[in-house]
């Protein structure tokens, strides 16, 4: 449905929130890699990975077309799985997460927005699902 294009309406807001997260996660990862990498290599590597996933999600959500929708779904799903796995893992093995990554403790350092954002993203992608996956 035309009025349900995923980069329109509410989708605009979602793209901007993803863009803000891409920017802040990238800046944070860059800083951590420069200054603290040897202190918590796992946590900081995950910060860098999450920054990349946010960037991919932002671009894919902003673009039109079936392929962009599929890429969005892949990125947002990875984000959902990532925040859940790292959230659980950071409670089980806190020694590996002395320096917080965006997703550790389910994103508590960011007001749990990293946990809620992929849920909202998946809901939006479901609402804006292309009628058929074969036609562009």
């Amino acid at each position: 449905m035309a009025e349900h294009a995923k980069n329109r309406g509410f989708g605009r807001l979602l793209v901007v929130i993803y863009a803000v997260f891409s920017l802040s996660a990238t800046a944070r990862a860059l800083y951590q890699v420069l200054r603290k990498f040897d202190q918590a290599p796992l946590s900081i590597s995950l910060s860098a990975v999450s920054a990349i996933i946010y960037i991919v999600a932002t671009v894919a959500l902003a673009k039109r077309g079936v392929n962009a929708w599929k890429l969005s779904l892949a990125a947002v799903s990875t984000e959902m799985v990532g925040v859940l796995l790292i959230g659980i893992f950071s409670f089980v093995r806190p020694d590996l997460f002395e320096i917080a990554s965006v997703w550790s403790h389910f994103g508590s350092g960011y007001g749990y927005i990293p946990l809620i954002l992929p849920m909202v993203g998946l809901w939006w992608l479901n609402r804006t699902k292309p009628a058929t996956a074969h036609t562009a």
């Binding site: 605009r12 807001l13 901007v16 920017l23």
Partner: peptide, 21 residues
Amino acid sequence: AGTLTWSLSERTKWSTLVLGV
């Protein structure tokens, strides 16, 4: 700077909400 640039290119009510972020 980013949200303002966005609002210049998109003239809908959603850009107003984008500014509100």
